[in-house]
Simulated scan of single mutants.
Amino acid sequence: MNKKIYILGAGNMAREAYYIYKDLGLSDNIAGFIIEDKYLSAKRKLLLDRPVLSAAKLQPDKNMLVMAAIGSPKRRKLIQKLERKKIQFDTLVHPSVSVWESVKISAGCLISKGVVLTCDITIGKHTIININSNINHDCVLGDFVTIGPGTHIGGNVIIDEGSWIGIGTTIIHNRRIGKKCFIAAGSIVINDIPDGFLAMGLPAKPIRKMTDSDWDRLI
């Protein structure tokens, strides 16, 4: 790849994305990190020896790709702003990932070290799958889903767009997680979870509807 790469974000996930590129032999392509103007400061000019720049000032370039590496669901709005400017996004998969030929990975996804993806899985745009997670046959993950580290997902599971699956969660086969759900870390999901709910426990139970302030507090 000869294109320059900008990583959207400057937090923990952005640093992980940098090291995935490094493991792929592409760290020299990284031109910088881009963030919202409100987070720019004189004390935050460099990250991993790369400049931290304004995302708002980024302009389309056929020789440029952006990798969205923000764990928070707030990444959706930033990504959509850049997409409206016709900026192209990279798809980042660590070389250690076990992925079968029948897996479909959409644009903008970030799949971290040690992930296992078996057969006939579909992964939507800008979904993040964290380290050492296992996703089994015939699963469908919607756009902007976040899968926490060490998550185990059985076959034929559907996770609708915008949902967050916490660290170490287990979801048994043939279950559905609705849109914009938050599944707390360590939960075991044995029943479907309806749209927009916070769920937790062993087994996981819907507790209440998520609110905007919940997302701001939890993420």
Rank of each mutant, 00 (worst) to 15 (best):
residue 168 G to W: 02
residue 154 G to V: 05
residue 149 P to H: 09
residue 150 G to A: 08
residue 152 H to E: 12
residue 212 D to A: 15
residue 142 G to P: 03
residue 167 I to H: 07
residue 143 D to A: 02
residue 180 K to S: 13
residue 159 I to G: 10
residue 153 I to W: 07
residue 176 R to W: 00
residue 182 F to A: 13
residue 212 D to G: 13
residue 163 S to P: 04
residue 168 G to D: 12
residue 135 I to V: 13
residue 182 F to T: 10
residue 160 D to M: 12
residue 138 D to V: 01
residue 203 P to Q: 09
residue 159 I to E: 03
residue 138 D to L: 12
residue 166 G to Q: 08
residue 151 T to L: 01
residue 147 I to P: 01
residue 192 D to C: 14
residue 201 G to D: 13
residue 146 T to K: 00
residue 206 P to Y: 10
residue 183 I to W: 02
residue 206 P to F: 02
residue 143 D to P: 03
residue 193 I to P: 05
residue 157 V to N: 05
residue 178 G to R: 10
residue 145 V to S: 03
residue 143 D to Y: 02
residue 164 W to H: 10
residue 172 I to G: 11
residue 153 I to G: 07
residue 188 I to D: 10
residue 154 G to A: 09
residue 143 D to R: 00
residue 147 I to K: 01
residue 155 G to W: 02
residue 195 D to L: 05
residue 205 K to V: 12
residue 180 K to W: 03
residue 157 V to M: 03
residue 199 A to W: 14
residue 135 I to L: 15
residue 152 H to F: 10
residue 180 K to H: 11
residue 195 D to Y: 08
residue 181 C to I: 08
residue 197 F to Y: 15
residue 164 W to P: 00
residue 207 I to D: 01
residue 150 G to Y: 08
residue 182 F to P: 05
residue 151 T to S: 05
residue 167 I to A: 12
residue 179 K to S: 00
residue 176 R to N: 09
residue 152 H to W: 01
residue 190 I to W: 08
residue 153 I to F: 05
residue 148 G to S: 10
residue 134 N to I: 09
residue 177 I to R: 13
residue 169 T to H: 07
residue 171 I to L: 03
residue 199 A to C: 05
residue 205 K to I: 14
residue 143 D to S: 06
residue 196 G to D: 13
residue 182 F to G: 05
residue 184 A to L: 01
residue 204 A to H: 12
residue 197 F to D: 10
residue 187 S to R: 14
residue 180 K to G: 01
residue 187 S to K: 13
residue 141 L to C: 12
residue 154 G to C: 04
residue 185 A to K: 08
residue 179 K to L: 08
residue 155 G to T: 06
residue 160 D to I: 00
residue 205 K to R: 15
